[in-house]
Write a protein that binds this DNA or RNA. Sequence first.
RNA 1: GUGGGUGUAGCCAAGUGGUUAAGGCGCCGGAUUGUGGUUCCGGUAUUCGCGGGUUCGAUUCCCGUCAUCCACCCCA
Length: 419
Amino acid sequence: MASPITAQRGTRDVLPPETALWQLIEDRARHFFDSYHFQEIRTPIFEATELFTRGVGEATDIVSKEMYTFTDRGDRQITLRPEGTAGVVRAFLQGKLGNNQPLPVKLWYGGAMFRYERPQAGRQRQFHQIGVEALGTADPKLDAEVITLAIDLFDALGVKGLEVQLNSLGCAECRPRYRETLVAYFETRKADYCETCLTRMDSNPLRVLDCKVPACQEINAQAPSLQDVLCEACREHQGAVMGYLDSVGIRYALNPRLVRGLDYYTRTVFEIVATEKLGSQNTVCAGGRYDGLVEELGGPATPAVGWAFGVERLAILLSDQVIEPGVDLYLVAMGEAAEKAAFKLAHGLRQSGKKVELSYAKRKLDKQFAQAEKLKATHIGIIGEDEAAKGQVRIKNLASREESVTAASAEGVATAMER
RNA sequence: GUGGGUGUAGCCAAGUGGUUAAGGCGCCGGAUUGUGGUUCCGGUAUUCGCGGGUUCGAUUCCCGUCAUCCACCCCA
């Protein structure tokens, strides 16, 4: 026998009944996107590599060592999308969405993302995100709105133990200033930092702040905080965001160490982290404002804000929720004429929206009952030789154990099942 | 990419350098012919992730490899 082919490292099959959980997540998400008036956008899974090097940032880990990049047969540099925002912004510009409808343009998307990482629970090479992007306004109301949307969704799904962490990364005005003071501080303590920190001081100094090495954390505790040097406009913006969140009772923790790994963020950044169940991969949802990205990708200056959550991680948080499959009617037939009658009856009932399962095996009746129980059927229908000859079916409610004989028609059976 | 743990059926698992690899759940079939998740009986791993080595002999020891999990890293 040939050896079986298995799923590639870092990819996995989502099997039933877990798929039912994914559907639940998707359904609830759609519901809230609709009420918050976000419209769906679907963009390609692969894009020009340059979209991500320019959008996400050359120096980021995602771009520098995690992308699935290849040259296609037409000599194009192609990358499987590692995140969703860059593609949405590209489509926003290409489709001229900013020109033909009122701003902000509020979009949501969902789908597979690809990053070449070492797999772990809650971290796959192909993983799935659902996210929102709102483009065209700098109004802090929108920062608060997208966070509120996320919390509403997670609440509705019954996710417990989440914490919102908030920070501001400043803007083109104050961030460079902060960078300078920060680097100046690092210089004074250079001898005490770990090696990754030392390289990051040049490439991406803000990232030094969320180093996990205890020694580095100690030094960072005394580092100047961005909160202290935010410009007036950024300070006001952050205050407004917090005010809106307060007004709807959303609790959050200000975390001045919160730095995102993508270059495009400005001002508001946030993460929604799970306090239990996820171990170190505990960020469920993350996002922020990216006022410079649209311009960076060749469009007009367009402020924007968005987030994405990881479907796999959310599914882990919800994994104790059991979604019972179950059918309305399990239909058993005995004899050739009965098989045909059952097949036809099932067809009629299914057309009218009943969930009907047929018996595909010739078992004894007591086994058929056991089978109906296993399928979580609410009713069982029996067509034997007698019933088939009379064009009838015996319907039994498996909970009440009440039984009746009725005409083998969709209407007749539907009525009998009401009882 | 770094360090560590694990790998016996669909799932949970016992086990040993040597005749036919426990058990449980699940699944399939049966217990004198059409009514319930119980009970009883039977079946369900040509082989212990894969490859190589040591050995008369390896599921068991060694090496490699793959997968998975944990921490780092990174992030959703």
